[in-house]
């Protein structure tokens, strides 16, 4: 991978685009058609009440499990990005520690129904009220707002795939050992995105997508801040029942 000439040939760009799109499709937790079909399957009042009646630590644990599942699909996605497995293990871990949650948030917009502000969770659609017992309403509102703004861009699955790869392959992450190599991967992915947006006649999206990156970073800091708040109150829950992968990534 590192010996690719720059600028990459059109053939290389197209092969890279195809590969990223395939990786995204093969590692999506839910297919778009599946989500579309379930779009109006909403939680009943009783079911919402049951979620709201959970204790703070029960609901945190429940969400940590769901989030960890989503992250595992992102890890698979990362592994299939051309060049990712050629990076040193330390750099692969660094990119996932800082980027997997961001990709989960981008992917979440596929599971979002803007018509009624609900998200697909546990097999049905629910609004922010479902997550009330987490005790972090501001984070949930911010996450839902972000999903709204992502949906407003109306990305195709191909554009979404490329954007997710750009979010993950970020040479600005601290502690990278071979920043040059990550930078070269990123540069080729940027060429791919420009090529795709040009082909789709949607070049104006590029700037809007780059603006999303800072929002993603602030959402992730808010998540870590909330986790810190929670773990000070319920250290045993985090220690003994949270998924080990969640702890490795976020604590």
């Amino acid at each position: 991978y590192p010996y690719c000439p720059y600028p990459p040939s059109l053939l290389h760009i197209e092969e890279l685009c195809d590969s990223i799109v395939r990786s995204h499709r093969d590692t999506s937790q839910f297919r778009l058609e599946e989500l579309q079909a379930l779009r109006w399957k909403l939680f009943s009042r009783e079911e919402i009440h049951a979620y709201q009646s959970k204790s703070v630590d029960e609901m945190w644990q429940h969400c940590a499990v769901r989030l960890t599942e989503a992250v595992q699909y992102v890890v698979e996605f990362a592994k299939r990005i051309p060049g990712f497995r050629g990076l040193g293990q330390n750099d692969q871990i660094t990119l996932l520690k800082t980027g997997s949650m961001e990709v989960v948030l981008v992917r979440m917009s596929r599971c979002f129904n803007t018509e009624n502000s609900t998200v697909f969770f546990d097999g049905k659609f629910g609004s922010t009220e479902l997550f009330k017992s987490l005790g972090c309403g501001d984070l949930m509102v911010a996450v839902f707002d972000f999903a709204h703004s992502m949906c407003a861009l109306r990305l195709t699955e191909q554009q979404m795939a490329l954007f997710c790869s750009l979010v993950l392959i970020n040479p600005d992450r601290p502690c990278l050992e071979d920043r040059g190599r990550v930078h070269r991967m990123r540069r080729d992915l940027e060429v791919c995105l420009s090529h795709m947006l040009h082909r789709d006649n949607q070049e104006s999206l590029q700037h809007k997508l780059y603006q999303k990156v800072s929002v993603l970073q602030s959402l992730c800091s808010l998540h870590v801040e909330k986790l810190h708040w929670f773990s000070q109150r319920y250290p045993l829950t985090v220690h003994s029942v949270f998924p080990p992968l969640y702890k490795e990534l976020f604590t």
Partner: peptide, 14 residues
């Protein structure tokens, strides 16, 4: 440290 991540990264993709 990062035991699970190491394992996930080492598993070959199916």
């Amino acid at each position: 440290k990062h035991k699970i991540l190491h394992r996930l990264l080492q598993n070959s993709t199916s």
